[in-house]
Computed example of a mutant assay.
Amino acid sequence: MDEMDLLIDLHKPAFRQGPGGDAETKRAISLSGLSGRPGLKIADIGCGTGASTIALAKSLKADITAVDFLPDFLSELEKRADAAGVLQHITTLAASMDGLSFEPSSLDAIWSEGAIYNIGFENGIRSWRSFLKPGGILAVSELTWLTQERPAELNEHWSREYPEVATASTKIAQLEANGYTPIGYFVLPEHCWLDNYYRPMQENLKALLEKYDRSEMARSFVAAEQREIDLYEQYAAFVSYGFFIARRLPD
């Protein structure tokens, strides 16, 4: 057993591996201007078990490549997409998000909900840009400060866990500096965290402890996850995911 085993067992049964919601994905689609365009090619990077992928497929009927480095998640995605009647629109790809091999200027859109932090926001938007056609759409949700000042314990926690956490104005400036023009932004509401992500996670945490016989590693892992939940519940006014939608500028 290692931490990756714990992560897979915690998140694989869940509908979402991070904060989000179908309504919020649809809102981002609306802001993106992708609706009604035939023959779209989209990559959903860090797709997990497919919540956003399936929402995209239902809304756009696009050719979607669902990318995740965990084959277990992709297998679950295929089952869920088949049950939802959209599997014909989806191709899965087991790959690291920092080692992608899409052809240059081959994608109409890149989607990534709650996952770009794995390689860092600025690194991700810079390295993925070449895969987009000029005028192509980038849509990502990213951990974002909602205020200029935060309580010390919240600031210390997220600055340690994800040093690139910043305000929306910082993220928008990074998009502009890396060849994009921002066309939409909104903040994920609390239900995307609590109802859609943390409450189901808490149920899975209980099962995880039992599966691993309440081992020291499992207890430490669960405690860290619960600490994150507690901080969000106390300080939801200061941090969320911002959903950023931008268009790639020509070179």
Results as ranks from 00 to 15, higher is better:
residue 51 A to L: 06
residue 170 T to F: 08
residue 127 S to T: 15
residue 171 K to R: 14
residue 1 M to E: 11
residue 242 G to M: 05
residue 197 Y to L: 05
residue 237 A to G: 09
residue 14 A to Y: 03
residue 222 V to F: 05
residue 54 I to G: 00
residue 151 P to Y: 02
residue 88 Q to Y: 07
residue 112 S to A: 14
residue 106 S to C: 08
residue 84 A to R: 02
residue 33 G to E: 02
residue 111 W to L: 06
residue 167 T to P: 01
residue 91 T to K: 13
residue 251 D to I: 11
residue 112 S to I: 02
residue 125 I to Y: 01
residue 116 I to M: 11
residue 127 S to A: 12
residue 171 K to G: 00
residue 207 A to V: 13
residue 159 S to D: 11
residue 28 A to T: 07
residue 175 L to K: 00
residue 210 E to D: 14
residue 176 E to S: 12
residue 140 V to N: 04
residue 198 Y to I: 13
residue 45 I to Y: 00
residue 6 L to F: 07
residue 204 N to E: 14
residue 113 E to N: 11
residue 170 T to D: 12
residue 245 I to G: 00
residue 46 G to F: 00
residue 54 I to Q: 00
residue 154 L to N: 04
residue 133 K to Y: 08
residue 215 S to D: 10
residue 200 P to Q: 07
residue 78 E to K: 13
residue 97 M to I: 14
residue 212 Y to Q: 02
residue 230 D to W: 02
residue 37 R to V: 09
residue 204 N to K: 12
residue 94 A to I: 07
residue 202 Q to S: 14
residue 136 G to A: 06
residue 82 D to M: 09
residue 41 K to W: 03
residue 170 T to V: 14
residue 134 P to Y: 07
residue 139 A to Q: 02
residue 240 S to T: 09
residue 155 N to L: 14
residue 186 F to I: 08
residue 242 G to Y: 05
residue 168 A to P: 01
residue 133 K to V: 11
residue 124 G to K: 01
residue 52 S to Y: 05
residue 99 G to L: 08
residue 98 D to M: 06
residue 222 V to C: 08
residue 27 R to K: 13
residue 85 G to K: 01
residue 185 Y to E: 10
residue 11 H to Q: 11
residue 127 S to Q: 11
residue 220 S to N: 15
residue 72 D to L: 09
residue 247 R to S: 15
residue 58 K to G: 07
residue 13 P to Y: 02
residue 85 G to R: 04
residue 96 S to F: 06
residue 202 Q to R: 15
residue 110 I to M: 08
